[in-house]
Design a binder for these strands. Structure first.
Lengths: 281, 281
DNA sequence: CAGTGGTCTAGACCACTGG
DNA sequence: CAGTGGTCTAGACCACTGC
């Protein structure tokens, strides 16, 4: 009985917001027949969703940087005045979204492209043999890196205005010495201030790892549009193939936290010895 | 205080397996210094994983059919002699894998391709406009459906032996009257006994829905290999395009429960007004 | 050894569905 | 209204990591 009483009054959290954002538990809403308030944006959501939002905000604000550990579940529970189970559920979802990685016995860490398991997270082109490691790391050749003004098309995809400054880079990836991928890359100039072809060329590791460590920009998700098209003159010269050879065209827009587009990449893949592998669930 | 005492003795669960498969809780392993037993295959796993396995088995065995409701969480908890939270976690994972769908207030149901939200679950080709609904349903034309013997290549992909009987079907999908997709489909003959071009043509709904309702075969996941290649004579005549036009080639192997391959489908997509859309996380 | 995430339980209460 | 899934808590104990 005493225990039940004690449990009951944990919903006394209305006046708890001291130095923290006001959390509204689902239970606090009972008796609230004010539909206007309920439907007001942003609508009320479960506690763990609110926690998730707060964690997300801390990630965006750079409170915890890629590769670092976030506070323990117990600490976060204390910080947000909720039970461990609630922050656990929030972290679970962020881990499912690849924003965090849990390591038993060690802690929970901000995911990063700089790690083995996420090295080529967005590159789905694999050798037909299936043996990813057999061909070794790709040879990367930066062919261009210049500052230009965004065309209307580029601007739209990157959520910029036409004419805004952007970086335009181009590179060729070769496997076993065979040019296989040609990529045109556009980046908003502001967040990537100080980018040069040298920095791109010298960096060891994936481009997205460079974005993180050098510019603090972490790509979280991406959307690709894939087509088949004939190689034009440029393609054929850079990939050393004949014109009109069918190429796999992959247009990718990559987003940071909060669905802000931060990169447009147009890839042209040679698919005679490789293929784009996709798993459907 | 009383409450605490009562909670303490809940770890008394050693002798619980009566008429059901023996579940081994993690806690039951405490004090077990027998590493041989622990490392013996299949390795011990968390209770909820074992529950997940049991649910999976019931799904495979057809105890609950696509679209039907499975027992409530409380019923399952009683059945397996575990707490509701444990079966909940098992169901959560199966729902994440799209094997089950939860509906608050109604129950948990076996997912099916016959529903709106899963109509074109495996078809990632969308109109460039992005407005999926604007073009209406595809016009489906079965051009072939015959029984043949599996080549070595087909057999390997379907886990059959060379020469085993398979159905081979072909169809053309048109959007707004424009032929856009050519598909060659191979199915193992045994599970799809009685398939005819008529049944394929007459069925309203997706092909995978037909597989479920008519043959009890539910496709759970698929893997696609995507390439760009030039249209050959057959492609050009069926899709009414010129030869050597670049086509998106999509080879898909679809699997039922337990990772058993049940369909090989080779699709050739025209990508001048449509594109293959993929989300990366 | 202390500290972390991982599992499991029990119980309360909520929101939603349908008769 | 009863029954379902959804949220939240509290507490016990486990497995793993590193000092």
């Amino acid at each position: 009985m005493i225990g039940e009483m004690a449990q009951n009054d944990n919903s006394t959290q209305s006046a708890q917001a001291t130095q923290l954002p006001p959390l509204v538990s689902v239970s606090d809403l009972q008796g609230t027949t004010d539909f206007a308030a309920t439907y007001a944006a942003p609508a009320f959501s479960p506690l763990y969703q609110q926690i998730k939002g707060l964690l997300l905000k801390s990630l965006q604000d750079g409170e915890w940087k890629p590769g670092e550990a976030i506070p323990s579940e117990m600490d976060l529970a204390a910080r947000y005045r909720v039970s461990q189970g609630t922050v656990r559920k929030a972290i679970d979802e962020l881990a499912a979204d690849n924003l965090l990685v849990r390591r038993q016995g060690k802690g929970t860490f901000v995911d990063t492209h700089a790690e083995k398991h996420a090295q080529y997270r967005f590159l789905k082109l694999v050798p037909d043999s299936g043996d990813q490691s057999s061909e070794g790391p790709a040879d990367r050749q930066i062919t261009e890196c210049k500052r230009v003004r965004a065309t209307a098309e580029i601007a739209k995809l990157l959520n910029l205005r036409t004419g805004d400054p952007v970086w335009q880079a181009q590179r060729v990836l070769s496997f076993r010495g065979v040019p296989t991928i040609l990529e045109d890359i556009w980046l908003p100039a502001a967040p990537f201030k100080g980018l040069t072809a040298e920095r791109l060329a010298d960096y060891h590791g994936s481009m997205y790892a460079l974005f993180e460590t050098e510019f603090g920009v972490r790509m979280v998700r991406a959307v690709e549009k894939i087509r088949a098209l004939p190689a034009n003159l440029l393609h054929s010269s850079l990939l050393k193939i004949e014109q009109n050879m069918p190429l796999l065209s992959v247009e990718r827009v990559a987003y940071t936290y909060n669905d802000v587009p931060m990169e447009l990449r147009r890839g042209y893949y040679l698919t005679d010895t490789h293929h784009y592998r996709n798993e459907l669930n």
